[in-house]
Design a protein around this nucleic acid. Structure first.
Lengths: 126, 126
DNA sequence: GTCGTTGCAAAGCCTTTGCAGGGAA
DNA sequence: TTCCCTGCAAAGGCTTTGCAACGAC
């Protein structure tokens, strides 16, 4: 049976608090502000455990590499802000999936990454 | 000045011949069928050189990791066949970029990855 | 003969794993 | 007391780099 540890709890809280896809470095940094001794290996092990459990999902971002986000949010896409370098989850989907590929291709799924400036950066640069 | 070597020529020919995004392993394997002694370090060095030169472009595929493709093909997307595991370049773009994100987000660019079955695999499975 | 390139091996990243000690139940 | 979990360090992959020999020009 799985036990409740301060380390795993800290990692889970980081995701709940940030509510956006996070990279290993951020998870480790934010987690350490809560549990100073938090080890990198522990983070990796818990991320894997939370993935298997279905609590987290993994995404491979074109510019940011591997990121982790809360699972179970349904189909959505990602936005990467070139200013603050954060990745946001965008609800909804406007893509006509089958129309996106030429005749002959059977499209079953897709992923979209958007790049630009997020609302808070856009506001602060005016 | 840059010199013409059999190794670099072999790598370039692999891309011309396949005409699709390739991973390191494929480049190395296909290149070795032409230049037996082709070394991994040489491939990495030449890929970097061809990237800097603007002859190649790098893509970070969600499922396939880092891939390389001929540069200068204009805006396009990628299709990954779950049968043959190859990645194809799809011309055109049907996405209304700004409509894909909520109010406040300034969208400047995007990338789309499609997943499914390619025409040749779809035909052979019937 | 230059000096850009190559092959080999060593070194760097990032991630995973082995192990003994520690802590949740 | 059990045995899951953690920290540390070593080991694995993949990519880059140092170096001497090679070969394009």
């Amino acid at each position: 049976m799985q036990r409740k540890t301060t380390q795993r709890t800290a990692i889970e809280q980081v995701f709940d608090r940030e509510d956006r896809p996070l990279g290993i470095d951020e998870i480790l940094r934010l987690g350490r502000s809560q549990v100073e001794s938090l080890n990198q290996a522990t983070v990796y092990r818990n991320l894997k455990l939370l993935l298997d459990k279905g609590w987290l999902a993994q995404i491979n971002h074109p510019a940011m590499g591997v990121l982790y986000e809360r699972a179970g949010k349904g189909h959505h896409h990602h936005f990467h802000c070139r200013d603050c370098n954060r990745v946001f989850e965008l609800p909804g989907c406007t893509l006509n999936q089958q129309a996106a590929a030429p005749e002959g291709f059977v499209v079953e799924d897709h992923e979209i990454f958007l790049f630009g400036v997020c609302p808070s950066c856009a506001a602060s640069s005016e």
